[in-house]
Amino acid sequence: MPNKNGSVYGLTILSPIIEDKSATPSHDLQIRNYLAHLSTREESPFAQAPGTHLARLVVMDDVIYVGAPACEDHLKSKYLIFESNCDGDLDSYLSGLAENIPDHLDAVWKHCVGYPGAVNRPAFINYMKACQLDTTFFFAAVNDKTVTETLRALQTQNAVADFIATHQGVDAVTLQREFIEFVAHLKAMPPPKPGSMGPHRDIKTGGRNE
């Protein structure tokens, strides 16, 4: 199954959410409440753990009825969807999550059926794999670069634009000297933090015509 495209892994996880009529608010609402207050910038859990290009968490309440003459289907559980586009192999990625953001994982997945907790690493990985769906077709526009390589390339792109703009008409000796200094300076810089340089999160009203 094509879960991978080049070196990028397309992870799709569906975790059944606990159905407990005595829970107030219900477990799905508790997940939604937690996610609503989670940063999407460099403080995001996915920025603190390695290897996530893009990821989403979605509470799926039910399947969708498209109208007669189709039949009406309903799920018996609600599901938490975790869709991630990440580097490397699956075990390394899941281990990285469990190692770096166990509290966030527990806060979200403790509302899901059979979740063993992130502290028990093998059980956590087995649980995630038990909830994994195989991707049927996976497309990645850039499929051979890690998150860090991409962040560094974006940093380089901005820096090169500035360098070119400020070195028009400079004599060859100065150009060569300053280019070598520029490259050394650029290599010494840490790459931007994942999730940084983005806009502050605004709560949107819906998914249609935004």
Binding site: T40, A47, H53, P199, G207
Partner: peptide, 10 residues
Amino acid sequence: TDYYYTAYPH
């Protein structure tokens, strides 16, 4: 989507 993250939002 309830929560959406990207490493390079810009």
